[in-house]
């Protein structure tokens, strides 16, 4: 952990960061086959999210960022450490506890094509979490209408099937489902990665607008540093199952300390040929410098 991150952790009062805390989390996946070696997906993860705050989680594929989101939701096995939500330990919550928890914690997945059951109408999909909490059918229907309005979908969408909608619209449905119970935290697992550029912009706007209106917190997982910078208050960078850097979004995404974050920042191309040429040169210089440092430190490339 870097010095600054430690400082950052110290200055944050526990009340502010109290909504979700993840301490020394370890996730192991069982290997395939008899007596197979376990695969360690996450190692000693420490994060926290306060009310109305967005923590951006950035990293490349296989870095464990999605696993972290799933562990918080109870979809990945917790082998060590603690996850607390509003002070309550939920590392090994039962299905019954999860049902209570689902009022406060929801999810938006990456792929808007497989995250909605193709056989159910939009209205049924949105009413599902309401029904689980025991809401009456008429009240649920009213709430579904509100939700559709909130995410900018026409109210006649209720009786349509997911395949009648484009990717961006489906993602709006998924967001509406997450919002149905007015949760305190939404885990967003690459929610805009599958979307077109202009659609991505609108959906990001929607996320920001919802946060402004409802004060919800986000754990926002993405591989795109630009997306994370845009939407997050704080950013954590993951690399090979560990968090290598964590801090205020502005600092981490503009002036990172960790070599990996530096590489990540310079790898993302900018939409201007001349500035991109400069960035390219910067990146080559950085790679060369890091290579020399590694050589001096005796680390094999």
């Amino acid at each position: 952990m870097t010095e600054r991150a430690a400082l950052d952790a110290a200055e944050s009062a526990p009340t502010q960061r109290g909504l979700l805390r993840v301490e020394d989390l370890v996730v192991d996946y069982a290997g395939k086959g008899f007596r197979a070696k376990k695969f360690r997906a996450l190692t000693d993860i420490n994060i926290s999210i306060g009310q109305g705050e967005t923590l951006g989680l950035v990293g490349e594929s296989g870095s464990g960022k999605t696993t972290l989101g799933r562990a918080v939701l109870g979809l990945a096995p917790v082998s060590g450490g603690r996850i607390t939500f509003e002070g309550q330990d939920i590392s090994h919550a039962t299905r019954r506890q999860r049902r209570v928890l689902s009022r406060d914690m929801q999810v938006v997945f990456q792929d808007p094509y497989t995250s909605l059951n193709p056989a159910l109408e939009i209205g049924d999909i949105l009413a599902e979490p309401l029904g689980v909490q025991g809401m009456e059918a008429t009240a649920a229907k009213k709430r579904v209408k509100e939700l559709l309005d909130q995410v900018g979908l026409p109210s006649d969408a209720i009786h349509r099937l997911p395949r009648e909608f484009s990717g961006g619209q489906r993602q709006r449905v998924a967001i509406a489902r997450a919002l149905a119970l007015s949760p305190k935290l939404i885990v967003c697992d690459e929610p805009v990665s599958a979307l077109d550029l202009s659609t991505q912009a609108r959906v990001l706007d929607l996320f920001l607008q919802i946060q402004k209106d409802t004060g919800v917190s986000y754990l926002f997982v993405s591989h795109d540093l630009d997306v994370v910078r845009h939407i997050s208050h704080r950013v954590a960078v993951m690399y090979r199952g560990e968090i290598v850097e964590q801090g205020p979004a502005e600092v981490v995404t503009r002036d990172p300390e960790h070599p990996y974050t530096q590489r990540l920042l310079l790898a993302s191309p900018v939409p201007d040929p001349d500035r991109q040429e400069k960035r390219r040169a910067d990146r080559h210089r950085l790679l060369e410098m890091q290579r020399q440092q590694n050589e001096q430190a005796g680390v094999p490339a």
């Binding site: 900018g152 979908l153 026409p154 484009s166 990717g167 961006g168 619209q169 709006r172 550029l197 202009s198 659609t199 912009a201 609108r202 990001l204 706007d205 929607l206 920001l208 607008q209 795109d224 630009d226 997306v227 910078r229 845009h230 939407i231 997050s232 979004a249 502005e250 993302s268 900018v270 939409p271």
Partner: peptide, 29 residues
Amino acid sequence: MLEGKEPMTMLVPAPSSVTARSTAKENVL
């Protein structure tokens, strides 16, 4: 494009909610 944008601001020009809603209906999404 997000590059060079002020974080935490709306990307699609205001009035955003109306735009979002009307565009959703037009299915530009």
